[in-house]
Design a binder for these strands. Structure first.
Lengths: 152, 152
DNA sequence: GCTTGACCTAAAGTTAGGTTTAGAAATTAC
DNA sequence: GTAATTTCTAAACCTAACTTTAGGTCAAGC
């Protein structure tokens, strides 16, 4: 009887789509075993694992990042509450950083609403050198403030 | 001489890729005219327009949302600083809401690290009914807290 | 006047995070 | 024992925001 949960059961209990659970397996986030008929069977601990995935996604982590965190869980045994608590602390720092960035952005915006400039000449709303605020890769400038386009 | 900027000039001054600028035109964010040879020519005001797009993207707005904001600019004349300031105020509320959501999330996480539960039984880290924290569409539950799977 | 670089269009490709489809096999329900 | 449901795989499709490619035209330098 205690031979694991089917993918449908796991889907009902988490609210995830069956296809999403299969996708997560493909991404290495969960590792079910197979029964004699080749169907996936999951441990009850996978419920918690998927909960972690769902929370981490809310926090803006990518699946590879989440996988990296999950890989820090003990291999041989079912994770304890202490294991999960340790992992959860990693969220704290990332979340703090994100809040800090957004708050800084908002404060800059506050200073900028009065002038309406949207330019690096007068406000610091957009600073390409601020690594914390940058997600992309290429250099991007506001109002034509390209390095070689120095204004006289 | 003052017959507008080429797409390459605009790209150099903003740091955007030429292909991105063409894409923005296709999305209706900018409306260049064409010279006799069929090449795009841009107004200097488009530098500011693209700056707005870049900032708004940093804030997490989608291109259709940004377009909606830009559509509120006056049609017949070059936008003034006051126009831009009016538009920028819209950012304020959205940004405030996002910071509030993240802060609430972090505070819930703080309460949860001690117990390691990651479950709705003991912590409120994940609340599917909290519209502010939800981006997806389907119902999703933590640790199997599906409505029909009521625990005794 | 010719060569090089900038520009044109249209369509296909890319990444993340999945969903949908099709056809077949396993399991459950009656 | 059979019908209905679930599950299986593989591949195609989806959205957002772009980039790349292919093949051709325009413009600028010497």
């Amino acid at each position: 009887m205690n031979d694991g949960l089917s993918i449908g059961a796991l889907a009902r209990r988490t609210g995830l789509a069956v296809s999403a659970i299969r996708y997560y397996e493909a991404q290495g986030l969960i590792k079910p075993w197979r029964n004699s008929g080749g169907q996936r069977r999951f441990e009850r601990a996978d419920l918690r694992r998927l909960s972690f995935v769902m929370i981490a996604q809310q926090f803006g982590f990518t699946l590879p990042q989440i996988r990296a965190e999950l890989d820090r869980l003990p291999g041989g045994r079912t994770p304890t509450k202490a294991d999960w608590a340790r992992i959860s602390e990693g969220f704290r720092a990332a979340l703090d950083a994100r809040i800090t960035t957004l708050t800084k952005l908002r404060d800059n915006l506050d200073g900028c609403i009065g002038c309406g400039c949207l330019s690096l000449e007068v406000c610091a709303l957009y600073n390409p050198r601020d690594a914390a605020a940058q997600m992309g890769q290429g250099p991007r400038y506001l109002m034509g403030d390209a390095p070689e386009a120095q204004k006289r």
